[in-house]
């Protein structure tokens, strides 16, 4: 029976789980925001390209 079976602390276990869940939640939330932002920016860039492609040659403005 060698080892002392580690006193299992359910409260500490739950706290650890909760902290992990919270960290993962924040992470996933941040990823949602990031992907949303990337999508919007890329859509904007594409729209710009389309516009400049449609513009008649020679007509350049900012």
């Amino acid at each position: 029976m060698g080892k002392d079976p580690e006193q299992f602390d359910l409260k500490a276990f739950r706290n650890r789980q909760k902290a992990r869940n919270r960290a993962l939640g924040v992470l996933l939330g941040a990823l949602v925001v990031l992907f949303f932002a990337i999508t919007i920016v890329k859509l904007g860039v594409q729209a710009e390209h389309r516009q400049s492609a449609q513009r008649p040659a020679g007509a350049s403005h900012a």
């Binding site: 079976p5 580690e6 299992f8 276990f13 650890r16 789980q17 902290a19 992990r20 993962l24």
Partner: peptide
């Protein structure tokens, strides 16, 4: 299987 403490984030 002892319930192992999950690693801290």
């Amino acid at each position: 299987t002892p319930l192992r403490m999950p690693a801290d984030w």
